[in-house]
Design a binder for these strands. Sequence first.
DNA 1: TTGTAGGCGTTATCAC
DNA 2: GTGATAACGCCTACAA
Lengths: 341, 341
Amino acid sequence: MASTIHDVARLAGVSAGTVSRVLNDSPRVDPRTRARVLQVIEDLDFRPSSLARRLSTGKTRTVAVVSPYFTRPSVVERLRGIAAILSSVDYELLVFNVETAQQRDHALDLLSRGSHIDGLLLVGLDPSDAEVARIERAALACVLIDASHPRLAAIVGDDVSGGKLAVRHLHELGHRRIAFVAEMPREAFSKPASSLRLRGARLESRAAGIAQPAEYLAVGEQGRGRAREMVSALLALPVPPTGIICTSDMQAMGALEAARDAGRAIPDELSIVGYDDLDIATYLGLTTIRQPLFESGMEGARILVSQLNGAPRRARRRRLKIELVRRTSTGPRPGGDPEPA
Amino acid sequence: MASTIHDVARLAGVSAGTVSRVLNDSPRVDPRTRARVLQVIEDLDFRPSSLARRLSTGKTRTVAVVSPYFTRPSVVERLRGIAAILSSVDYELLVFNVETAQQRDHALDLLSRGSHIDGLLLVGLDPSDAEVARIERAALACVLIDASHPRLAAIVGDDVSGGKLAVRHLHELGHRRIAFVAEMPREAFSKPASSLRLRGARLESRAAGIAQPAEYLAVGEQGRGRAREMVSALLALPVPPTGIICTSDMQAMGALEAARDAGRAIPDELSIVGYDDLDIATYLGLTTIRQPLFESGMEGARILVSQLNGAPRRARRRRLKIELVRRTSTGPRPGGDPEPA
DNA sequence: TTGTAGGCGTTATCAC
DNA sequence: GTGATAACGCCTACAA
């Protein structure tokens, strides 16, 4: 049905090779033949089969991105950055959403062997050594976003600093009773950024001489619902925290709900800090740690493309800047005067 | 570098054809040869090149989805439904995010000719007759989601009914001064669902004898920010509306912000209705029209796959049920007693 | 400048 | 059952 390069050749009275040269605008072709060929191409509405071309050249101009829960707002934003870059340089984008360990393995296996992609972008997903070995064997370019591995290039947020920033902010506002709400997905696809943020928070707490009682640490599945439960429990404590630091904005939303449930005024009775600075954060007036999600996607894609263009595949770790965005969900510690430790 | 079917053949002492038969588990192959071949495949960690296979069979097991603004929450949810079905039947998913008319044309052109996909899913995007012709010529299966065309299968929400439902709800609560906030994207990719919802709303208004002054209709770009502006203007009117119907939850968020800005209590002084029932709607307590986004994606993908499996490609329009979800953003008309028209 | 021939890695149609 | 052989549609030496 669809016409081939041979049809064009025949109608233009040239050989298939010549048509191919026109297609790839090789310099060595007579202007008049070129014109003739182009005319026939136009008439036939002919487009070369990208499949055949790929097989022949070994280049697919396709990259795959695999990510757990690609539906999460933070991931979507990264995906958007990736798509923006790729479409600008005319690469196609294959997406794999993985929600179970099995899907994860399947996708990675498929991609590192099927040889129908040039590059791989892993977001929020730490590959195993064996997987990295296969990726290298397949000569695939690969960049990690919000994940890491010693042999691969990676884009990460500065999560430890982010955690520190959050604590410092509350500390400066006079808070001494600070609780943490962290996420620990059921399926651990990566050493969660969450734990790094938590680590930063604890480091800063220690440095500032803030006590960290065990009951002030709540860890649970990601998402608003679970966070709401956990924060409700925190607020029901005999000595509840005056500040709560969440490792994501979604969790912070849950915290806001819990505060509302418990009748705690924000920020007069309770301060809440989120992480990500999603779009809704401005709506919520949420004080949060902003990390450049869109940019992380762009940057990861850029590096991948440069590797695809022949740049050396160094295992460099690029750490993106974060910053605290102060809004109205945080305020001075209730009570007025400093609290005895 | 990577091994081919011939390497396997050689090492197993058979012909490539036989290896191929083993790969596609054809019945007519001696159990012992099969075992031998499988062993070699294992040893070599061999996987057939999907590219070569595709070229040879003409089937790619890949479908593309193209959508404007695939980053919008409602689209993401649909995408998730699509991905769920496709991965379950082992199809790969190529995504095209289009944000300009040019990208849109480019994507459609590319896909309908490159012949490297089996099917096409268009979400929120009405193809032109010419485009449909090309799609048919390329023998591509194609299903529309939240869009329509006389010659293609489509999944749509019952937008007209949704608009009616919203008006009926406010009417029953006693409201007589009802304003509409609709979205009109800068680039019109499809006859926006928004306008259908609006139509339903107007029909119901007329039926209920509700006046529809021109100043009660605000149309602007999608998104929270613009809606906030438009609603602020509505609230500043000499005779402001007591109820506002938005054609999306994002706009409803903007409306809530505007109400907050203007110091209007929700729902005591102002009722607001959204559309979509996004995840945040529960957080906001937003009364809204729920449409099954995830299901629409699944259903669209299902139909596409069935077509790919040989089902007839009928241009059937499947209309998904919607329902009103009542929450706390709507209440009785302020003032108590009925208003003189 | 252009044509020819071989190859990319499979599958499919024949014979044997 | 299994092995040649010819597609699939393009690219790219190598020749001419």
